[in-house]
């Protein structure tokens, strides 16, 4: 794990971190309206660190606190992380269990995608992922705490296309991950079809989980070339 990798990862996440901070300020405003202080919000940022699920938590915030229902809703929204961190196996290869348990907390959708794309283009280590995670967590904390104190930096992020920033970044990184139609054509088609269907039928972000699994299973069913004759 290198300092250079950390800095590269941090810098690579800066463009999307701007959008993360803007959304953070919106969350901060909503949280303040529910009576949460900046310390509550900061603690939630540091411990949960998963944007869309924190919006749902603040939305459900009421007296008495529905702790169990909230934890369940958060689980539904964050279920996709099981698949996302599963893809990081090569990055964590040879790491001690304590290192895995520490660094895995810094995995968000954005820095995961940035690091996976950087890996495909020649290399990114665990430091890259961590630097990106610190960048996003910093932007998220700054944005939310500022939102509690001063109101939203951008009152209507949708009007500025900031919601689309995430879709755009994921699109650009998906292009970088494309391995050609022979290997990725059918798996991606399956993923897109199942995700679009799932988005209408499933709760939370289970559609990401369903689409990802559909793509992976499709790839498993395609004939492999490299490892043929290896006793499989």
């Amino acid at each position: 794990m290198s300092a250079l990798g950390w800095r590269t990862g941090f810098r690579a996440n800066l463009p999307v971190a701007a959008s993360v901070a803007a959304y953070g300020s919106v969350l901060g405003v909503l949280a303040a309206q529910k009576g949460l202080g900046w310390a509550d919000v900061l603690l939630m940022d540091l411990m949960v660190f998963a944007g869309s699920s924190q919006f749902v938590m603040v939305d459900m915030w009421a007296s008495p606190l529905p702790t169990a229902a909230m934890a369940a809703a958060v689980g539904v929204i964050n279920a996709r992380y099981v698949l996302i961190t599963a893809t990081l196996r090569p990055l964590f290869e040879g790491r001690r269990i304590l290192e895995k348990l520490f660094f895995v907390h810094f995995v968000a959708d954005e820095n995961w995608a940035v690091t996976m794309a950087a890996r495909r283009q020649g290399g990114a280590d665990l430091g890259h992922l961590w630097g990106g995670g610190v960048c996003l967590l910093g932007a998220w904390c700054l944005g939310t705490v500022a939102g509690v104190g001063f109101g939203a930096a951008v009152p209507d992020p949708e009007a500025w296309g900031l919601d689309f920033a995430f879709t755009a970044v994921f699109t650009a990184l998906a292009v970088s991950l494309w391995r050609g139609s022979r290997r990725d054509g059918l798996p991606w088609l399956a993923a897109v079809a199942v995700a679009c269907l799932g988005e209408r039928l499933l709760p939370g972000t289970w559609y990401v989980l369903a689409g990802g699994l559909a793509g992976a299973v499709t790839a498993a069913c395609l004939p492999g070339e490299e490892e043929e004759g290896a006793g499989e």
């Binding site: 959708d109 995608a113 998906a174 199942v194 679009c196 988005e199 990401v208 992976a216 790839a219």
Partner: peptide, 16 residues
């Protein structure tokens, strides 16, 4: 399956 998974997850995030 594992090698196809990152791209499939991104496609599933983007398309809907």
């Amino acid at each position: 399956a594992m090698e196809a998974l990152p791209g499939a997850i991104l496609a599933s995030l983007v398309a809907p």
